[in-house]
């Protein structure tokens, strides 16, 4: 027994009395935690019951899945290889332009929505609610809206992604800016810098790595989204995917899915390299 433990044991009662708050509340806290878990489980059970989630139905459906997977082999482009590749390029272009436009619009909005940049409550409250509203509408809904505005095709897809991600980026950017360290800003202001200087030299260098990795992730995510909005007619590979599913050409569906999978993996790899190049390896390694 170490000397410290001997002292603790010898004074156990006195210690307990002096710090009763650290021992007494424990049971109550534990019961609260258990109650929270029970309530969550009950809510989940209620949802399962009300939404008619049936394992039996899922079980019989599994056979159907097996049939479909069987029909997917071998994956084949059929006679549409060039068309598919062209559509894939279109999807990539939609994702790229949509993400770029969203980031460009969201950056100033993110600054306006950050409490440490705009101390005025009304200003950043207004910008935040605007971003919430834009974000509240899903990309698929934006796609349907823009198809009615500019007609079917990739342009509608670009606008849909740009609109929906402006909301997401605005929120993420403003949070990254608010999490930034205040000390560099103080350094710039103390040297006689204006508010704009404080943003340019105090905040932006801190948030650029965060923003860059978010934008790169969204480019990858949007490549997948662009597939979905293609299904409703906003251009890209999704249109072909929906069509092949409709005509039950499972081999071609499998080929398209693999094509998208490979593309996303490549983007992921490239963006990982880019991210390291921007952040600099030193901050990631042991330092």
């Amino acid at each position: 027994m170490s000397p410290l433990r001997r002292i603790a044991v010898a004074n156990a009662d006195a210690l307990r009395a002096r710090h009763s708050d650290l021992f007494d509340g424990v049971l109550a806290r534990r019961l609260t935690a258990i109650a929270v878990v029970v309530v969550l489980a009950a809510l989940a059970a209620l949802a399962v019951w009300r939404l008619d989630v049936s394992l039996a139905r899922f079980g019989s459906g599994l056979v159907q899945i097996a049939n479909i997977v069987g029909a997917m082999f071998p994956p084949t482009p059929g006679t549409h290889l060039v068309v598919f590749l062209h559509a894939l390029a279109e999807t990539l272009a939609i994702a790229f332009l949509g993400t770029l436009i969203a980031a460009a619009i969201a950056f100033p909005l993110g600054l306006l929505a950050a409490k440490n940049v705009i101390p005025n409550v009304f200003a950043h409250f207004a910008v935040r609610r605007l971003l919430d509203t834009v974000r509240g509408v899903d990309v698929l809904i934006w796609a349907l809206i823009f198809i009615n505005v500019v007609g079917l095709g990739p342009f509608a897809g670009i606008l849909a992604i740009a609109a929906s991600d402006t909301g997401s980026f605005g929120k993420l950017f403003s949070e990254a800016i608010e999490n930034a360290d205040r000390k560099p800003v103080e350094g710039v202001v103390a040297a006689g810098g204006s508010a704009l200087h404080a943003v340019r030299y105090g905040l932006v260098p801190q948030v650029v790595p965060v923003i860059a990795s978010q934008v790169l992730y969204y480019f990858e995510s949007n490549t997948r989204s662009a597939t979905i909005i293609g299904i409703v007619g906003a251009g890209g590979i999704g249109l072909h995917l929906a069509e092949q599913i409709r005509v039950l050409e499972w081999g071609q569906v499998a080929f398209l899915v693999l094509l998208i999978l490979v593309t996303v993996a490549v983007i992921d790899w490239v963006s990982g390299r880019l991210r390291f190049a921007i952040i600099g390896r030193s901050t990631v390694g042991a330092g």
Binding site: L4, R5, I7, A8, V9, N11, A12, L15, R16, R18, H19, L22, F23
Partner: peptide
């Protein structure tokens, strides 16, 4: 016991 040691 360990809490007591920590407090000590």
């Amino acid at each position: 016991d360990d809490k007591l040691v920590a407090l000590s």
